[in-house]
Design a protein around this nucleic acid. Structure first.
Lengths: 233, 233
DNA sequence: GGAAAATTGTTAATTTTTTAACATCTGTTT
DNA sequence: AAACAGATGTTAAAAAATTAACAATTTTCC
């Protein structure tokens, strides 16, 4: 079993029309992908105001980025051609970015591990705006396996995971169990058809090719803060 | 006011003995900094077992990194010289990384914005292990400004922020307010002496030179997941 | 209608980060 | 005790990401 994650480029397969000898595969850098949500957020706030059009230099200035970078990022995900002196159509850009990110369709997700962090995520209501719906949470501990909140998803015992994931065709798994059991949970999720895993456990996971692993590391962020303070003392 | 963040290198000033013409300033790349917590976690788990020594190739294999990269990272933060055929002393490495990251001393932090996400973070108990202690939370909404949980820090009205931060000499601020008010809160924190800001609001913040801004973006992570699913449909 | 200003899109240069290559050192094993 | 295997540390190459440079285009304002 080989470790697999997004390394440098994410290939976006374009089924259908291949023009000329071009293979029709668009490739986008991970860095660009990470910036897309920033653009999206900014554009949406903009739309609420007057601006029907927006230029790359404006976006760059507002977000503290380089202007060329913004243009390249836009070109990578949108066919929207900007007009000189005018810029890009705001609404169109939003549509294209959302479509690219898949926020326009809904993916259902399950969460495993209802400890502190897990329950915190369960309580987070922002998933919807990213096209993700948390349908259930699982925990080994039977005590925790009870209704939690009113609108929040149920916490179920681990035994029900396989069945539910298969029945509902779940594609996203969120892992918030301790490091020791993370790999085990990960394997279980993959065997149920999960194709993208968001790992909060501070450990390296191994997934088969074709499954995306995204590691979230609170510790890394804190390391940056902490190192800065250490330095500036 | 100029935007400032860790750009590419973090300068670590070494007060004291400067050998030769060397200025005594160590510089470490941001990427390295983000990997340090991974090493730390791995090494600690290792220490629990048998291993008094560990080699760079082993670490690299376990964490899915390049072996040279690991050696360079170690060299950047530790004076611990590895012995050929043996590797590095595990305990010494742990000490050095923790010292470098400042996890050995405690920094106190405040959180502003006790909405869903803010309360989730308040409930998170992992801060201690990174040398961070959350001493108080603030919210504009007076209703929310009440005791929350038993061990969790208090939620106080915004009016008390300035006084508390100044009195306690707080250096870290965590922002979990909506985008609209994030800059205002940020400015307030900076004016109270906060020198590192962990921003969860999906917006660009401007801080004066010398203050570190670390943006946390859940949306960016989800973008990666979502784009992958979009592609592999 | 024409000059000026602003913006696009692209190609080239720079910088940063990662990976490979290699010479050297240290335990271990026969 | 000598050869070997497994490390280290460093220097060089490669790859990736960012930034600069510039020609081409479109609106605006006289």
């Amino acid at each position: 079993m080989r470790y697999h994650t997004i390394n440098t480029r994410i290939l976006i397969g374009a089924i259908g029309h291949m023009c000329g000898a071009q293979s029709g595969v668009r490739s986008i850098s991970k860095q660009t992908l990470l910036r897309l949500p920033m653009y999206l957020d900014y554009l949406k706030r903009l739309e609420g105001e007057d601006a029907a059009h927006i230029s790359a230099p404006k976006i760059a200035a507002a977000l503290g980025l380089n202007e060329v970078q913004v243009r390249k990022d836009i070109a990578a995900v949108s066919s929207c051609a900007g007009k000189p002196k005018t810029g890009f159509e705001t609404a169109r850009l939003i549509r294209d970015i959302e479509a690219f990110l898949g926020y326009d369709s809904v993916n259902e997700a399950v969460l495993v591990g209802a400890g502190k962090l897990g329950r915190a995520l369960l309580g987070y209501e922002g998933f919807a705006q990213f096209g993700i719906r948390l349908v259930a949470a699982f925990d080994r501990n039977a005590d925790a396996a009870a209704m939690y909140g009113k609108d929040a998803p149920m916490i179920l015992p681990m035994e029900k995971l396989t069945d539910l994931c298969r029945r509902m065709g779940i594609h996203i798994g969120i892992i918030t169990v301790p490091a020791e059991s993370a790999q085990e949970v990960c394997d279980l999720l993959v065997s149920c058809g999960v194709r993208a895993i968001w790992n909060f456990a501070p450990t390296r996971l191994y997934v088969p090719e074709g499954v995306l692993l995204q590691n979230e590391n609170i510790a890394s962020s804190l390391a940056v803060l902490s190192a800065h303070l250490k330095q500036s003392m």
